[in-house]
Design a protein around this nucleic acid. Sequence first.
DNA 1: GCCACGGCTGAACGCACGTTTAGTGTTATG
DNA 2: CATAACACTAAACGTGCGTTCAGCCGTGGC
Lengths: 218, 218
Amino acid sequence: MNVRSEDLTARARIRDAAVARFGRDGFRAPVRAIAEDAGVSAALVIHHFGSKDALRAECDQHVLTVIREQKSNAIAHASPAETIGMLATVQEYAPLFAYLVRSLLDGGALAGHFVDGLVDDASAYLQAGEEAGTVRPSADPAGRARQVVATQVGLLVMAQLDAAAGHGVAPTESPAEAIVQLYERSMLAGLELYTYGLLTDSRYLDAYQHFRQDKEKP
Amino acid sequence: MNVRSEDLTARARIRDAAVARFGRDGFRAPVRAIAEDAGVSAALVIHHFGSKDALRAECDQHVLTVIREQKSNAIAHASPAETIGMLATVQEYAPLFAYLVRSLLDGGALAGHFVDGLVDDASAYLQAGEEAGTVRPSADPAGRARQVVATQVGLLVMAQLDAAAGHGVAPTESPAEAIVQLYERSMLAGLELYTYGLLTDSRYLDAYQHFRQDKEKP
DNA sequence: GCCACGGCTGAACGCACGTTTAGTGTTATG
DNA sequence: CATAACACTAAACGTGCGTTCAGCCGTGGC
């Protein structure tokens, strides 16, 4: 992504163009458009990858790999302040994220695995945090991990929505921008929520627990 | 939805079939399939609605209307226990939700408005809760509302994913079932999170607030 | 009885798009 | 120099699908 396009092989240029196009327009983007972006013919795309689906599979692989790398970088610096600081670098990888969101929305194979991976990671982090004393214990750790991941996923999707119909602050912002923006606009509230909670007492929680008990033994 | 299909006009039957199909297979579902579901010809679908897009617009309208009605029912009974109990009725409207999720995923016009509506509603509820003393005050009420809605959206999307690639508990569950299931599996953790928070202290929150300050005046 | 009309249909049209084909340089190999 | 191998292309093919066309019922009005 930080290499000039002329330096890349046609194959790589096509792959990058595909990631960008798919991320921006979704997977219905015509092969011909990707080809044009990469400065090649549509036939060459097929020649190199065999089919559009195969091209997409390779994009999946590529995106997953890069993001994994980036994530393992992130866990290296694990102090609160630095983890937060990492967000600034998100901007550079925004096209990858856009692609990822498309994949999520499309419900493709990548999406399922990726979300499962996120949930597993979240589980592990939360468990570690619990042991380190920074995270509260939970009656349902797996559910909590899903909950946390769901918020991430939801923010990504909402960012995509904002980008599609430009009813955000900036009219025709790029999907990439939208992701960064929405994160910035929700980060404070999110941390606040995770720090202090939302409710002042446990009435709702108690009510639900009673509801569950009644349901199991009526 | 609770009327037998023979009793409906062809127009309504087509609309219902379209909602169901679109919800299950996405908006790429062929008009011919919808027509077959409704027991009519493809040409009749166009005859009644003018185009596939117009049909979809009418589905949007229909779904939005029904869900709005249902939601205003829900706010009538506002005690914690009853609000929780309402969830049981979700099952009946699952096809509508499936359609809604598709719309979200597709990034259509409905999606944006719907999410905006959710955020507005959440804002209002949270504000009311705040005044009633059941909800904690926030430094960023709008951001918090988005955060809460993002979690809902994320859960819906994840449910859809689980339904698509049947790697859930039940192998080939319907999308509708998947939504209910995932909600059940995350409700306890969600309430716990909203009641007690996630973190044991405010280190992350403090770090972020410092980060923001540094960014504004470097 | 006849006519107009709206619900309804099967067949055909046309477009968008993935893929195939047949071929043209261009480069490495003997 | 001949030949094979490879990157690459323009044009054609085939298919899926939205939409249009031309016409068939069944019903209500005269």
